[in-house]
Amino acid sequence: MNTAIRLENIYRAFKNHFWQKKKEVLKNISLEIYQGEIFGFLGPNGAGKTTTIKIITGLIKPDSGKVTIFGHNVDSMEAKKRIGFLPESPYFYEHLTGYEFLKINALLSNYIDYKDRVHDLLEKVGLKEVANLPLRKYSRGMLQRIGIAQALIGDPDLLIFDEPLTGLDPIGRKEIKDLILEQKAKGKTIFFSSHILPDAEAVCDRIGIIIDGEVKEVGELNKLLKRGIKTDEISLEDWFVSKIKKNHA
């Protein structure tokens, strides 16, 4: 299987103030995401999911360790051309309309004939009616959808979504899960994070569990469940809670 993302021994610490001690946020993270899979990156709040994603997308650098995207350095144009990124609780230029926003993103993704592409995506994420409304008037769910549209606009091979389901109602969650499955069917690789476990059960091929900056488990969901707990009825949520408790014990 080809590798889409490879993280090798990623370490990163942060200092909030210069007099404070450095806080280790990522301690030796190694992960391999295969081409064509849906990978759920799961863990409680503050575990280091967003920090890992920022390293994968080149927004920050690891203190040590190596990241490659389809074998390319994250800062290279080859890597950037193949990534579509949805940030956590995304913020966009409020003064732009949905259409203008996607137009700019299409141009940045080198779609010079952007018109059809922008219309297609507005249609796809169901925002055609509000295309000419400024983003500041969009609801949370609409922002999430325009965020996904901007991630898809360059037709990238690898989609990286940071908490795509958080803050959405059940219908919104269903729509985004369907969209993730649809992208997989097209041969795309999807890496998404979540702190809500049942999200993963429906869509993921494999999951990775991060707690306190360390990857605790990686593998196929059903195998992990079997290995962790004997009974069939137990939910991922319970399993997760037991994992965290063990970690803190």
């Binding site: 997308t57 950037k80 990124f85 940030p87 995304p90 913020y91 230029y93 940045l108 080198n110 991630a151």
Partner: peptide, 14 residues
């Protein structure tokens, strides 16, 4: 500050 730069920096833009 507004984090609007995230989706710009991660596009194939120098």
């Amino acid at each position: 500050e507004k984090r609007t730069i995230y989706t710009v920096i991660t596009k194939p833009v120098k």
